[in-house]
Design a protein around this nucleic acid. Structure first.
Lengths: 197, 197
DNA sequence: TAAAAGTCTTAAACTAGTTCATTTTTTTTC
DNA sequence: GAAAAAAAATGAACTAGTTTAAGACTTTTA
């Protein structure tokens, strides 16, 4: 059976943890919505109740909140083959505090809350898929929330560069600063220092 | 059917997300190991391959790593009705980088990796239980890794006190400092400042 | 219950990271 | 491809949090 590129990417992502029959694959894909976001456009804004969880098939987006002073804090950069959204708002149906903005023209596959619930009824194997997906995300967030607090900004930058070498070149220094948790000015100093070494 | 106190606590924890028959409850409980840890004793040390995931029925433990300088960084305080362990080491069977030490005499129920895998075969409903458990932990870690980076130490202390009022009184200021991510000296200053306000 | 060990407080000198202001460089837009 | 807008670099003055050291208070242990 032939699938378009974006569907193949998603099916491979799922095949890491569970095996689906052709029929199940088609059923699953029928529950998804295709979404395109232009560069600088918002996928989600604070106050929205998020309708979907997203799988990125093309592009790059930044997920962030604004603090009381209006300063952005980026919690992740989402690129191809990543899942994103606001799980809290998606589950509780309460308004999100997050913004998700495309930093490149992006294409996504979204699953609505109704279809997410339906999915577990129709193909119970997906409980396992999400159990493992959340377990792995949890492991990396636990590590990150530890690291974030125990490393200096320079060490966090070096770690990020090592872990996501491709992403570093796709984002601005300013956005990287908002992710690392420092000012753009200090980010600039760190980068010139690290490059000199 | 009568269950002992520790088992009732665990069964109620599970009943938040899934319903079990009496038979399933008994089957589940039979897969668990009872563990006691004296104050100051270790449940786990860096280098160990962790054999269990733990549910705490009594007491308090601190979960931490040591950085290159030997300074501790506490990632959580685990008390009654909490789950703890090192999920990464448990899943990959690689050595852990964590220490888990009892700060009070503690009692736990542990599930081994073998029995964890068996559980999903015997009672597939547990896929759903862990899917939701990990989903919720993930939501709170995502929030925390954001907050950790955007708040000052004083704000993080006030948040912790509001969120875990009971735990604050059970731990030392020194351990709280290692959790907040500051020195004990600065923790002391913050506390006397906040109390004066 | 006395001694030892660990915890908490205070203070002075220090450093990682911020703020504000200005200039240069790069990217976007028409 | 010129003008406008945004991002990056640099530097000086500032602040949140660290380090070191010493004394007071509490808890643990023999």
């Amino acid at each position: 059976m032939y699938y378009k590129e974006s569907h193949t990417l998603l099916l491979n992502n799922i095949a890491r943890f569970i095996d689906l029959t052709e029929l199940e694959k088609q059923k699953y894909l029928s529950l998804l919505t295709e979404i395109k976001v232009k560069k600088k456009a918002f996928l989600m804004q604070a106050g929205d109740v998020t309708k979907y969880e997203y799988f990125i098939t093309k592009g790059c987006l930044k997920v962030y909140t604004l603090d009381e002073d209006g300063a952005p804090h980026i919690s992740m950069f989402a690129v191809e083959d990543y899942w994103t959204g606001d799980l809290a708002s998606f589950m509780t149906k309460k308004p999100t505090r997050y913004f998700i903005k495309a930093t490149e023209h992006s294409e996504l596959l979204g699953i609505s809350r109704t279809n997410y619930d339906l999915l577990f009824q129709e193909i119970p194997k997906f409980e396992k898929f999400y159990r493992i997906l959340y377990q792995r995300s949890l492991i990396s967030y636990i590590r990150r929330s530890n690291h974030g607090i125990s490393l200096t900004a320079e060490e966090r930058y070096i770690e990020f560069k090592k872990k996501y070498p491709k992403i570093v070149n796709r984002i601005t220094q300013k956005d990287l600063a908002a992710y690392i948790g420092i000012t753009p000015e200090f980010m600039s100093k760190i980068i010139s220092k690290v490059n000199r070494m």
